[in-house]
Amino acid sequence: MRLDLTGRTVLVTGSTQGIGLAIATGLAQAGARVGVNGRDGARVEKAIRQIAERVPDADLVAAPADVATPEGVEEVAGRLPDLDVLVNNLGIFGAKPALEITDEEWRRYFEINVLSAVRLTRRFLPGMRERGWGRVQYIASDSAVVTPAEMIHYGVSKTALLAVGRGFAKEAAGSGVTVNTVLAGPTHTEGVEDFVYELVDADLPWEEAQRTFMREHRPQSLLQRLIEPDEIANMVVYLASPLASATTGGALRVDGGYVDSILP
């Protein structure tokens, strides 16, 4: 299959590292003009250099802004006024005993993980609908379905994204715009390495720490290893392409079989 996004303009939020950086790279490889986003302008420029090393002819736009705020959304829209593809990847996570999660933390997780995506969709979906083509995606997690006891605030925020995606898919019905959510499984990123070491012996070598984490905290995984960010990006690039024109309103899993379900 040829996943060709030549001529399409894309924004990937939170794309200076990890899954977001892999998604931005994959979309650039498919020929898209890619907006790279993060709060720190220096980190955005670094990410652009990293993508350009892998994709020398990439068409990249620096879009630094805090898109968890209304002001940040408008700042990005000023740089990229007409999007064809919006990938809502921005998110935070962290372990915290359930009874110690404060109201302030619950609000922070909802603001960043959910409302940022809602605001961006509200800003860009109308233009896609008017032009008769577009793709909106939300990067959720297996935690949306299998709520982790050690971070229920994160799990709840990702569960909310499933409803957000399904709801906006109905809003876009019949317009040529598709809206989907991608459920990423336990993925190997720098942030996840830190998270793993919060839960297992910090003195263990990484490979042993990873196996221990999967065995003790993610035993449902059929892959029995952490997923690489590029593997998540492959699904996102496909969903952004014209080949995914009949896939909308869905929650598609790239979870290594972690969610024990025969349905997507």
Rank of each mutant, 00 (worst) to 15 (best):
I19C: 13
G20Q: 02
G20A: 00
G20S: 01
L21P: 03
A22H: 03
A24D: 07
T25F: 09
G26F: 04
G26K: 11
G26E: 04
L27T: 09
L27N: 12
L27W: 08
L27R: 06
A28F: 04
A28I: 04
A28S: 11
A28L: 06
A28G: 05
Q29L: 12
Q29E: 12
Q29Y: 06
A30G: 12
A32S: 09
A32G: 11
R33T: 14
R33S: 02
R33G: 02
R33D: 00
R33K: 08
V34P: 05
G35V: 09
V36D: 06
V36G: 13
N37M: 05
N37T: 07
N37W: 05
N37C: 04
G38K: 00
G38Y: 01
G38V: 03
R39A: 02
R39C: 00
R39L: 01
D40C: 04
G41I: 10
G41K: 05
G41N: 08
G41Y: 03
G41D: 12
A42V: 15
A42S: 09
A42M: 04
R43G: 09
V44Q: 01
V44W: 01
E45F: 09
E45N: 12
E45W: 09
K46W: 02
A47N: 09
I48S: 08
I48A: 05
I48F: 08
I48C: 08
I48Y: 11
R49D: 07
Q50F: 11
Q50W: 12
I51L: 07
I51F: 14
A52V: 01
A52G: 03
E53L: 11
R54M: 13
R54Q: 14
R54K: 15
V55C: 11
V55A: 07
P56A: 12
P56E: 13
D57C: 10
D57V: 15
D57M: 13
A58K: 07
A58C: 10
D59T: 15
D59N: 10
D59E: 11
V61K: 12
V61Y: 08
A63T: 15
A65F: 12
D66K: 04
V67C: 06
V67E: 11
V67H: 05
A68E: 07
A68S: 15
T69W: 00
E71P: 00
G72S: 10
G72K: 04
V73N: 06
V73T: 14
E75N: 07
E75W: 03
V76H: 08
A77Q: 06
A77E: 08
A77Y: 07
G78W: 08
G78Y: 05
G78V: 02
G78K: 02
G78A: 06
R79E: 04
R79Q: 08
L80S: 10
L80D: 11
P81L: 01
P81N: 02
D82F: 10
D82H: 14
L83N: 03
V85A: 05
V85D: 07
V85Y: 04
L86I: 14
L86S: 12
L86W: 14
L86C: 10
L86Q: 08
V87I: 15
N89L: 07
N89H: 13
N89M: 12
L90K: 00
L90R: 02
L90W: 00
L90E: 03
L90V: 15
G91H: 01
G91W: 00
G91R: 00
G91F: 00
I92Y: 00
I92A: 01
I92Q: 01
